[in-house]
Simulated assay, not measured.
Amino acid sequence: MSWNVADVERGGVAGVFLEIACDESGSDGENLTGGNTDVFAHAGVSLSLASAAATVAEIRSRIRSPAEEYKATHLLREKHRAVLEWLLAPEGPVDGRARVHLMEKAYFVVDRTLGLLLDDAAEAAVLFRAGRPVFGQEGWRAFLEAANQLLRVRHDGDPVDAFYGTVDTLRRAHPRTDAARILERLAATRPRAVAYRDGFLAGPPLIPLLNPLLPAIVRTAELWSGSGRPVHLVHDRQNMLTPERIAWIETTARRAGIGLTGLRLVVARDDARVQVADFLAGIARKIASDELNGRGDPALTALLRPFVDPGSVWDDARSGALLAAPVAG
């Protein structure tokens, strides 16, 4: 079923829309391979203002930091482990009322590169699994950085030559492997890459291919629209969220049959619901990053798992400890 704003305003939908407060953690724009984080997280919470304010007040009471604004880093400190476990616990303040969409940035780069150049994002998992063991850490890092530079709007030097030079070097050095087979296909796609770069001559695109925030917002709306009610998003202010991009998010969601009635921006410190979403996004990003890098905390991973979107963007072979079963709407 699809919804539209007019239906809601006329009262043509039973009940009011479901308002979801959102925030993100780990945003480095289009710099997905050389930024400060390797995971991007986007969280949405369904809490009343009163419940969210009570949750924030309880966290402040338990942590007792003089900080004017609390962030996820406060809860992630070992001395506040009990507060973190309380927040994520079954029957805790956000149990059944929060979800988080995760993106492993390196996988997102590979997925977008193969989707653009080969029209075959299904090969992303094959290349992602084979790349590091076949090319070695240095070779794999070179491929990821070249792909990132090719796709991002702002870049250094000639990203087309750099990318295809890297592809050629790696495929010749590692022939007769699954990874080299995919690179052979990529080697023939230079005209597509040139056309993609030439498209920037008229100005930067409205929707950068590599920015994870915009598709994550659409996915958050999709996650919550299963409730049977239209969804309205409240999001922390972001420079990326211009009126034109908000219009794109709303249009994209509606075309996909997602019941998104709209998105409005707020200042996080003025909305306790967004503060709780900020906590969850930051916590989830750190726990996910630790898990993917072999230093995970099994207890925290288990607590986070029920909140994680099963449609999170990364290689399924590496995400088993984090991915949750689908959550009923």
Rank of each mutant, 00 (worst) to 15 (best):
D7L: 12
T301P: 10
A302V: 13
H74V: 06
R77K: 14
A247R: 14
W248D: 06
A106E: 15
P205M: 01
A180R: 04
D161L: 05
R264C: 08
D278E: 12
H155T: 12
V100W: 02
V266G: 03
P133S: 06
W248K: 03
I246P: 11
E222A: 08
R172S: 08
Q238V: 09
D270T: 15
A162K: 07
E68W: 12
E68T: 15
H232Y: 13
G115W: 13
S51C: 07
L303P: 00
L323C: 09
R154I: 10
L127N: 01
A125S: 15
G34I: 08
K286P: 07
A268F: 09
Y164L: 03
D297Y: 09
T189C: 10
G311Q: 11
S25E: 11
L186A: 02
D270L: 10
F128H: 01
E30I: 09
A216N: 02
G259S: 06
L150W: 01
L209S: 03
A43V: 06
P205T: 01
V110T: 09
A130W: 11
L223Y: 09
A321T: 10
V234R: 02
T251Q: 14
D316N: 13
K79L: 07
W314R: 07
S312L: 02
A142K: 00
A321R: 06
V126N: 12
D119I: 06
A173G: 13
A328I: 13
H101W: 08
A125V: 15
A317Q: 15
D278M: 04
A317I: 14
N211G: 05
F128P: 00
A325L: 12
I63G: 04
H101D: 06
H155E: 12
V313R: 08
A21M: 01
S27N: 15
P212A: 01
A57Q: 14
G226W: 04
A67Y: 14
T220A: 04
R192M: 07
I246N: 12
A317Y: 15
A247K: 11
D316W: 13
V276F: 05
V234I: 14
D95T: 10
R97T: 09
A281G: 11
L263N: 02
A221K: 00
E68P: 11
T251A: 14
A162G: 10
D28V: 09
E138I: 03
Q275P: 09
